[in-house]
Structures are given as structure tokens and as C-alpha cells.
């Protein structure tokens, strides 16, 4: 057994190690802490948003070992050893220190938001989707991004921004 928190009713905080936006963090977490709550409440990384808290809206999307997931449905303790990238670290992760990530720049250029609450999740989800490499057409992008809800309805411009970045990437 790698980890045993002890008898039921007396669970201790468990020591885990996470690399968050390039920085190794040694943390003590209660097992019922979600990755989302750890990021927002304990590490002050409030760029990642809590929308529905039930995996339905995508506002909490982050990259875990390069893969986009809903951080609200992930227990932090289970991600022990993982590399986490949030919207705060997206540009640096892409080697854009000091500048915006190409997706962030494209979202600004295309006016791909209104209230902005869903935007961090849209950005992380789009970054994950592009690296997955399965979506190419506009229809496929829309389908692959369906886990990110935008109640302002900026979808058209969001797809425009993602297409810009995908086409720029293909041209490189």
C-alpha cells in the first residue's frame, strides 16, 4: 500500500507533491479536497473558476500531465506526482514567458468573451484540445469544445480564435 490515511473517522491530511505551473509544491491535503479547491482556496490560483462544481460547465478546466480535465471532479490527493498547468501558467508552459499564450492573444483579437468567467476554462480546454490533435474542421472544434459552456454565447468568436491558432500552428 503506497498510502493509508488511517482508520475511518480519523483521516489525516496526506502529503503530496505537485508541480504547478512549473513549480514543485509539497502540500498537505485532506483527501476530500478537490484539485479545484486546492488551487483556489489554498494556493490562491483563482484564475481557474468554479462554475457548476459538477463537471457540467468546464470553467474549472486545467491541464494535468498535459491532458485537459475538470478540476472540480478530481481529488487533489489522487493527483500526487502530477504536473498541473492552470491559466496562470499557460503562457509560460508554451514557452511564452512575459507574453500571452497564442490562444490568449487570439481570444483578445477575436473578442472571444464577454463576461470572461468561462475564459480560463475555454483557454485551457482549447490548449488541451489542440495538443490532442483530433479536431481540425470547425464542426470538430465545436464538438470537441462542447464541455465548455459560455452563457454569454461567445461561441462563434471562441471557435474563430481557436481556428486562428490551429491554422497558425499548421503553417509553422
Amino acid at each position: 500500500m503506497l498510502i493509508d490515511s488511517g482508520s475511518p473517522g480519523a483521516p489525516a491530511a496526506i502529503g503530496i507533491s505537485l508541480t504547478i505551473n512549473g513549480e514543485v509544491r509539497e502540500l498537505q491535503v485532506a483527501p476530500w479536497t478537490t484539485l479545484l479547491d486546492l488551487l483556489r482556496e489554498e494556493l490562491d490560483l483563482t484564475g481557474t473558476k468554479k462554475g457548476c462544481d459538477h463537471g457540467q460547465c468546464g470553467a474549472c478546466t486545467v491541464l494535468v500531465n498535459g491532458t485537459r480535465i475538470n478540476s472540480c471532479l478530481a481529488l487533489a490527493v489522487m493527483k500526487d506526482g502530477a504536473e498541473i498547468v492552470t491559466v496562470e501558467g499557460l503562457a509560460r508552459h508554451a514557452g511564452q514567458d512575459g507574453a500571452m499564450h497564442p490562444l490568449q492573444a487570439a481570444f483578445v483579437e477575436r473578442d472571444a468573451f464577454q463576461c470572461g468567467y468561462c475564459t480560463p476554462g475555454q483557454l485551457c480546454s482549447a490548449a488541451g484540445m489542440i495538443s490532442e490533435g483530433h479536431a481540425t474542421s470547425r464542426e470538430e472544434i465545436r464538438e470537441a469544445m462542447s464541455g465548455n459552456i459560455c452563457r454569454c454565447g461567445a461561441y462563434t468568436n471562441i471557435v474563430d480564435a481557436i481556428e486562428d491558432v490551429m491554422h497558425a500552428g499548421a503553417a509553422r
Binding site: 500500500m1 503506497l2 498510502i3 493509508d4 490515511s5 482508520s7 475511518p8 480519523a10 500526487d80
Partner: peptide, 23 residues
């Protein structure tokens, strides 16, 4: 969310024992 204890086995045998060890 209720409080619970947490175990992380590395083998199927350990996992089966762990699931049977608590109601």
C-alpha cells in the same frame, strides 16, 4: 462531501483486500 479515509494500493490483491476492509 462526507469525510472518508483514503488508501492507494498498487496491486489488484491489495485493492480487493482494501475494499473488503471497510463497510
Amino acid at each position: 462531501m462526507n469525510r472518508f479515509d483514503y488508501v492507494r494500493p498498487t496491486t489488484v490483491e491489495e485493492a480487493v483486500r482494501a475494499i473488503g476492509s471497510a463497510a
